[in-house]
Every structure is written in C-alpha cells, then in structure tokens.
C-alpha cells in the first residue's frame, strides 16, 4: 500500500493506493491521525485503492469520528468493489462519499 498526502490550507488529501487490509491498516491509521490533527478537513482519495477489509473500515470509522468534531471527512473516487463493502456494512450512510 502506498499513501500520498497533499495538504492545502486546512484540507489534507490522502491518496491510498493498493490494498487496505489487516497488515496495512495500522499505517493508514497513523497517517490519518496526524493529518486530522493538522487539518480541519480530510479528503480520502480511493482512486487507486484495490480493496479494503474490515481493518480498513475500522480506521475509516475512527477517522470519521475524529473529523466530525472539525469540518468533516470526504471519501472520493470509490470503485465498485470498495463501494460494495461500504454499502453492505452501512458505512455508505455514515461516510460522506463521492463515487468515482
């Protein structure tokens, strides 16, 4: 998994490429934690994300909870596989998602 962060004023865009699974989720968790502290809002670009597992969901949930205190979080460029996971788990209602 490759994580690329771009910070623009108060908004940080985190681009996740590859697989967000049990082994890679902790890495994203620490990146998001840093970015969430620095910025008012977060954008997660999942354009190059192959899939995410429940470990990834857990990271997304805690980031969403953190950013709800601030100006919020947005997920963009969600592919079909990822969208299905988000949908069956109810995350599609919890997160702010822009499909690709």
């Amino acid at each position: 998994m490759v994580i690329k962060c771009t910070t623009n004023d108060t908004e940080t865009t985190v681009r996740v490429e590859g697989r967000l699974d049990t082994t890679t989720a902790p890495e994203l968790e620490s990146v998001l934690k840093d970015a969430g502290e620095k910025s008012d809002s977060l954008v997660l670009d999942f354009e190059e994300l192959d899939y995410l597992s429940s470990a990834g969901l857990r990271v997304l949930l805690s980031a969403q909870k953190m950013m709800m205190q601030k100006k919020g979080m947005k997920v963009i460029h969600v592919n079909e596989t990822v969208w299905e996971i988000l949908e069956v788990t109810g995350f599609s209602d919890v997160l702010t998602i822009e499909k690709s």
Partner: peptide
C-alpha cells in the same frame, strides 16, 4: 457513526 464499533464487521463482509 459515533455509536458504531468496527468489531465483527470482517465475517459480516
């Protein structure tokens, strides 16, 4: 979101 916990989601998925 605030009331959600991430546990048990794996098998569910």
């Amino acid at each position: 979101a605030m009331e959600r916990i991430a546990g048990g989601l794996g098998i569910f998925v």
